[in-house]
Design a protein around this nucleic acid. Structure first.
Lengths: 122, 122
DNA sequence: ATAACATATGAACAGTTGAGCAAGTATCGA
DNA sequence: TCGATACTTGCTCAACTGTTCATATGTTAT
């Protein structure tokens, strides 16, 4: 098999390659960077503490302390996770004196959450 | 504040708790176990290698070697990740002699994938 | 049988991540 | 101004995860 210059087959250690299929697929795939961002996005959903927080905020905005109480975890742990959710733009907050209320910040979240539930319940 | 017997406020180290809100939220939340499974499910999407594999399989079924070639990774690495995807019931495979072809196994996957893309592109 | 090859798997290792602790910031009330 | 309180953040460590290497399994051709 003739490899083109610069062809990225350095690590692939097998021979049966359906070149036509691979190249066709390559054309349809999103940019590498977008796929990376997408994985980062789903990573945020991939932790049970964060999923619980998201699930809780569907019903009501809540302050950090309420969430810590609800989930029986330290305020620090919740605050750390809220930061992750904030950075992913999944939650927003408003301040009322000392108290910070968090709520969801995205319309897609509920749909993604529910479709995930569909999958695990089928 | 009076704590009920067996109340799970052991680790919460603050005082301002909106009990009514918290208890109302608690009633609407899915079972702990389902939330755990949901996090496990999203964890599978939270790795760029697996996202690339999923993204590739939208277009065509492919053998392990094709995927390794496409992503310029070792066959072993791909095989390991395909196992994760298989265990999450996201892909299925069919065997043709020595070659194993993988394809997607779920209708929700495309929707979840696309809604994730919506989020990062907004 | 034996060789060749596509894929799977186990162990090891590096890198990442979540939680707790302790210290810090910001706001309120006295 | 001072203490109390709601929250945030830096650090550390144990636990987890993805990749590689070496090896095993299963299929085909000779």
């Amino acid at each position: 098999m003739v490899l083109e210059i610069g062809h990225e087959a350095d690590r692939c250690d097998c021979n049966v390659i359906h070149e036509d299929v691979v190249e066709r697929v390559r054309l349809t795939m999103p940019r590498e960077e977008d796929l990376y961002d997408l994985a980062e996005f789903f990573k945020v959903f991939g932790d049970s503490t964060r999923i619980k927080i998201i699930s809780a905020l569907f019903k009501n905005e809540m302050c950090v302390c309420d969430i810590a109480y609800l989930l029986n975890m330290t305020q620090s742990a919740i605050s750390h996770q809220l930061r992750v959710l904030r950075q992913a733009r999944l939650v927003k907050n408003r301040k009322e004196g000392k108290i910070v209320f968090y709520s969801l910040n995205d319309e897609h979240v509920k749909q993604i959450f529910d479709q995930g539930l569909n999958h695990i319940n089928e």
